Simulated scan of single mutants.
Amino acid sequence: MKSLTLFIVFLISLPACAAQLTVESGSGSRSWQTAELLHHPAAQTLHITDDVSYKRNMTYRAIPLATLLEGIKPDDHLQAVALDGFAAELAAAPLLNQNGAKAWLAIEDPAHPWPPLGKGKPSAGPFYLVWTDPQASHISPEQWPFQVVSFKRQLPVAERFPALRPDPALPKDSSVNQGFVLFQKNCLACHRLNGAGDAQFGPDLNIPYNPTEYFAADFLKHYIRDPQSLRQWPQARMPGFSPTVLPDNELELLIQYLQHMTTRKVNS
């Protein structure tokens, strides 16, 4: 009876919002609870300047992400899955890097929760991928997934989703194939195309219509730069891609990929 009472007291004392992070390496799976990560030997206080999600300086309890990616190799491909359906496609090499841009897993302490991301919105927790010195490796905002619950080793995007591939007759270094790489980095975390992809966040970008088919002239570029300047609504979640994040030449390559994919639609 005494042991049962102690167990009940223990359960009551647990934080209500404690979470679990899972890393699937392909050969195995490992999970950590919030408390384990907060007290991990590698955990430290981390200061992030101009945080991508909070738009201000933030301080976190964080662990170098590479510490948790045992068995992951630089040429592997990972997917960060979030509570809200966001599925960020991530090359493993930058996540394992110890010089220049460095990836960290920020851990939300249920006893000291992070602020909401906006009015009526949750925080970036329970886990958030943040970067120090992101400019050193041209890290994009889409490589800062928040509300993360798992990292999964996956096959490369082109192998998993053939419907996303450009015409195989195109040279590998063609502008369309370069745009496909940029699409994976900047768009696939939120959008599907031809029904392909794991994201549950934004609309399909080819079915039934590709945005290059209904945006006139350069309005698509304008929309990508600043979505709210063309369509304003309170629930809008698409961020703007500034020239520092997506330079003009890369934006042009991305649009060439989208235009090309209008010729490669699948049956809806």
Rank of each mutant, 00 (worst) to 15 (best):
L230F: 04
Y257S: 01
L90I: 02
D248V: 06
L95V: 02
A196R: 01
A66F: 05
W114A: 15
K55C: 12
N99F: 00
K2A: 03
L188G: 08
D51G: 13
Q147P: 07
A35C: 05
S175W: 04
A236Q: 13
H222I: 00
F183W: 12
Q135G: 10
L246F: 09
F146A: 11
G26K: 15
M261W: 04
I72W: 13
F180S: 00
K73T: 12
P168R: 11
Q178S: 06
W233G: 02
F219I: 01
E142F: 08
Q20L: 06
Y128S: 10
H77Y: 02
P208C: 08
G26S: 14
L254P: 05
F151Q: 00
C190V: 02
A42H: 11
Y223V: 01
R237L: 10
N249V: 08
L69E: 11
N194T: 14
Y257C: 01
V23A: 05
I63K: 06
A199P: 11
V130D: 07
V181H: 00
V9S: 03
I48L: 05
Y214S: 06
D109V: 14
P243A: 08
A16N: 06
C187M: 08
A236G: 14
G100F: 07
P162N: 08
T45I: 08
A16L: 14
W233M: 07
P168Y: 13
P115W: 12
N97G: 06
R231N: 10
S123N: 08
G120N: 13
L253N: 07
P247E: 02
L78N: 06
P234R: 02
R165H: 07
K102D: 03
L95F: 05
W32I: 08
S137K: 11
K152L: 15
N57W: 09
R160L: 10
L83Q: 01
V52I: 15
E252L: 05
T59P: 04
A217C: 00
E36D: 07
F7Y: 05
V130Y: 09
G240W: 09
F183L: 02
E142D: 09
M58S: 04
V176D: 00
Y128H: 12
Q256I: 13
P162C: 14
D50G: 03
K102E: 14
S229R: 14
R153H: 11
L6E: 03
G202V: 11
G118S: 01
L21K: 01
A42E: 10
C17E: 03
G179S: 00
V149A: 00
P116S: 15
L251Y: 06
P74E: 13
Q79N: 12
Q200M: 09
P243S: 08
A62M: 10
F10E: 03
Y128C: 14
K2Y: 06
D173I: 10
L254V: 03
F180E: 00
S27Y: 04
Q154K: 12
L90Q: 04
F241S: 09
P122V: 15
E252N: 14
G26Q: 14
A66Y: 02
T49L: 04
P15Q: 06
P110Q: 08
Y214F: 11
D84T: 09
Y128G: 14
A124G: 15
R237H: 10
S3I: 12
Y128F: 15
H112C: 03
I63E: 01
A80P: 11
T59D: 00
M261R: 00
V176P: 02
Q184E: 15
S137E: 12
R165E: 15
G85I: 11
S137C: 03
R61C: 15
A66I: 04
F151L: 11
L220F: 11
